[in-house]
Design a protein around this nucleic acid. Structure first.
Length: 710
RNA sequence: GGGCACUUAGCUCAGUGGCAGAGCGCUGCACUCACAUUGCAGAGGUCGCUGGUUCAAAUCCAGCAGUGCCCACCA
């Protein structure tokens, strides 16, 4: 047999992936041998709008290394793939398409629009899964799931019903984050804050003259029907919301305003009476120490309003426009427009004391970037009390372990201050809330929360569910610890009475060389498939794995992929050398014991010992999710111990006896074969290709199902 | 405002108490040799700064400076 002079991944990868698919070994039920213990990973389902980015590539590499390693160790391994319908994200993409045709989703109507989304899904939804194949991922494609499959819909309905029957789902009018563009409420976790320059406006509110007192300086002012005595100044970043004001609040300990508490202020432009109240939430250090209270459009103010029994007035609607509750001149104006006019009007009345520049965090929709409004709205909520308690307990008792451990803190901090989960969304693409007369759909994460067991057939008690639940590892990004991981944990406990996984591996974030976030919109993204084309999928995987050190973020440099490519070529060529040394007739793979009684040279003993040490160390590394250490160890062993030292020494044969020469040949083949096995989880294509071409007798059908070295 | 990380060679990073390391890049030499995607040799570092603990500190402790990320109701 003949290997080309250099390894050419383009000629190999497609063919080898087909070999794996045809072998059936991606499916745990078709793996050879008796396999009692299972090892399961469910993939974090990428959005159907998604394309593979470096984060996916890294996560896919980690998961595939683990799965291939365990598969070779004799586990019944399942890596279950799938995609998420990603409510808002997908709806937005399809809406953008419609926009090109000059249409909105309302032109089509709900039913027609959803049809459109399904068409889109059928056409593009699986692209990202094909990209995972290019990376060499050994998922069981026969079990691919989608969060809106018929069976999955049943799981979502069953889960909803369960919570409903328990009385944990309720309807409530709350001030929620609202995206005027997506026309839906959003949960706290779906907000992104962006720092923007704004102003802090200081506005003078007249104070009504106490009817009993005879203050000499009281007067009637032209713009108010009330007699006023003096003014109280409040500071605000959003003057347009004054239209919805219901009170002015100060801190109860603030001496400056002691006399004013209990009196009444007048809301400029509206001429509404506002009680002046005291509440501990008011920070006397900020602004003037007096704050306007707008219960309908601010979360703090809403809290305060509950304590003081203040009613809401909604002055901003779902479109982000001023409502009819406001005075006529402002009605129908967009928020920003109204802001400018109100500031002008206040200035004219001499009620604008001053304006300061102010840098603050503006809430944005994490899907479309539109500035969010806070508006009161009827929504469905899921009570979090018991569920949160269970979730905390699972991690505290170490039934679920975070890896690295420090991410526990993010998890606990969120759960300890948790609010009830707003599970309704006013979009069209998603799971309809299974109640009569409700058009809302469920938050995407409600269905994602069921992923580890709904994909295995729940609520039916399937064979798969019994065999593969709970899973072993969840490997995911840190930014969805609370959006997703937390919710899977309490859902798993609620419906399966067991946590959905034993380990949560929070992988590194891939940054640019400059330490910035990789993002498509900023043009700082890097397409892993381009790297695969340029250097090969193995090189890309190895280069990525090389950089995964202790969960530290990775400033990505291509240099490591170059290293990966060189390494694959080295493995290829070392094989060529070994094959030249051994005879052409098919050889039996030497077993370890054959060496123990033979006459071994110092070099022989050294390489065998080094191999042994490497096997043990790599196992330990992988058990601890230390992918970088494992790849460096394998690299060092193969390139230096094996190629530079042992192979080079083997070339000097003149002084050797016949036995020694035979030993050398056996050891070359033995070490090579074991190296291929050890390297296979990291660089599966090249090692499989070589294995397929090795002229040895007792071969398995694929290296993928060879026995892991012991 | 709170939290979590990070700072070591030109670049990207290992090393967590005992002679400063890797990959990439760079310099020189070597292609009838498995591999020039190679081999051999080499240059390159006050381990962010200041103190402390120790026989011994890149490593442990304290403080400072800088960078990044996350959370948060300061209007």
């Amino acid at each position: 047999m003949e290997l080309s002079k250099a390894y050419e991944p383009q000629k190999v990868e497609g063919r080898i992936y087909t070999l794996w698919e045809k072998s059936g070994f991606l499916n745990p039920d078709k793996l050879p041998g008796k396999r009692k213990k299972t090892y399961t990973i469910v993939i974090p389902p990428p959005n159907i709008t998604g394309f593979l980015h470096m984060g996916h590539a890294l996560n896919a590499t980690c998961q595939d290394i683990l799965i291939r390693w365990r598969r070779m160790q004799g586990y019944k391994t399942l890596w279950l793939p799938g995609t998420d319908h990603a409510g808002i994200a997908t709806q937005n993409v399809v809406e953008k398409e419609l926009k090109k045709e000059g249409k909105t989703r309302f032109d089509l109507g709900r039913e027609e629009f959803i049809k459109r989304v399904w068409q889109w899904k059928e056409k593009y939804g699986d692209i990202i899964l094909d990209q995972l194949k290019k990376m060499g991922c050994s998922c069981d494609w026969s079990r691919t799931r989608f969060t809106m499959d018929k069976d999955y819909v049943r799981a979502v309905e069953a889960a909803f019903q369960h919570y409903y029957d328990k009385g944990w789902i309720y309807k409530g009018k709350r001030v929620v984050n609202w995206c005027p563009r997506c026309q839906t409420s959003l949960s706290d976790l779906e907000i992104e804050y962006k720092e923007e320059k704004g102003n802090l406006w200081y506005i003078k509110y007249p104070v009504v003259k106490n009817s009993k007192s005879q203050a000499p300086n009281s007067k009637q002012i032209p713009y108010s029907k009330f007699q006023i005595s003096n003014f109280i100044t409040v500071a605000t970043t959003r003057p347009e919301t004054i239209l919805g004001d219901r009170a002015v609040a100060v801190n109860p300990k603030d001496k400056r305003y002691k006399n004013l508490v209990g009196k009444t202020a007048v809301l400029p432009l509206v001429d509404r009476k506002l009680p002046i109240i005291a509440d501990r939430l008011v920070d006397p250090e900020f602004g003037t120490g007096a704050v306007k209270i707008t219960p309908a459009h601010d979360l703090n103010d809403y809290q305060i309003s509950l304590r003081h029994g203040l009613p809401m007035i909604q002055v901003i609607d779902e479109q982000g426009k001023i409502t009819k509750e406001a005075p006529l001149p402002y009605q129908g104006m967009r928020v920003f427009e109204a802001r400018q006019k109100i500031v002008e009007d206040l200035k004219k009345l001499g009620l604008l004391e001053k304006t300061e520049e102010y840098l603050h965090q503006i809430p944005k929709c994490y899907r479309c970037g539109t500035t969010l409004e806070l508006i009161p709205s009827e929504q469905w909520f899921l009570k979090m009390g018991e569920l949160a308690k269970t979730a905390i307990e699972m991690v505290k008792s170490e039934k679920v372990r975070f890896q690295p451990k420090r991410w526990e803190k993010v998890y606990f901090d969120w759960l300890k201050n948790i609010q009830d989960w707003c599970i309704s969304r006013q979009i069209w693409w998603g799971h309809k809330i299974p109640l009569k007369g409700v058009d809302d759909v469920l938050d995407t994460w409600f269905s994602s929360a069921l992923w580890p067991f709904a994909t295995l057939g729940w609520p039916k008690q399937t064979k798969d569910l019994k065999a593969f639940y709970p899973t072993d590892v969840l490997s995911t990004a840190r930014d969805i610890i609370n959006l997703w991981v937390t919710r899977m944990i309490f859902s798993g406990m609620e419906f399966m009475k067991k946590p959905p996984f034993k380990n949560v591996y929070i992988h590194a974030t891939v940054l640019t060389k400059e330490g910035k976030r990789m993002s498509k919109s900023l043009g700082t993204g890097l397409d892993p498939l381009i790297l695969c084309d340029k250097y090969g999928a193995d090189a890309t995987r190895f280069g990525i794995a090389w950089q995964i050190m202790g969960g530290q973020d990775i400033k990505f440099v291509e240099d490591n992929i170059v290293m990966g490519r060189k390494f694959c070529n080295k493995v290829w060529n070392a094989t060529r050398f070994v094959l030249l040394q051994i005879s052409n007739s098919k050889l039996q793979i030497p077993n370890k014991f054959q060496f123990t009684n033979s006459k071994l040279t110092v070099a022989d003993k050294r390489i065998l010992k080094a191999l042994d040490k490497t096997i043990k160390a790599v196992n330990k590394d992988l058990e601890g999710f230390r992918f970088g250490q494992a790849s460096r160890r394998l690299y060092g062993f193969f390139w230096h111990d094996f190629c530079d030292i042992y192979v080079e020494k083997s070339k000097i044969q003149s002084s050797k006896s016949k036995t020694e020469k035979e030993n050398t040949q056996k050891i070359l083949l033995y070490v090579l074969l074991n190296s291929l096995k050890l390297l296979h989880p990291f660089i599966p294509f090249v090692t499989e290709e070589i294995y397929q071409q090795l002229p040895i007798k007792n071969k398995k059908k694929c290296l993928m199902v060879e026995e892991w070295p012991k």
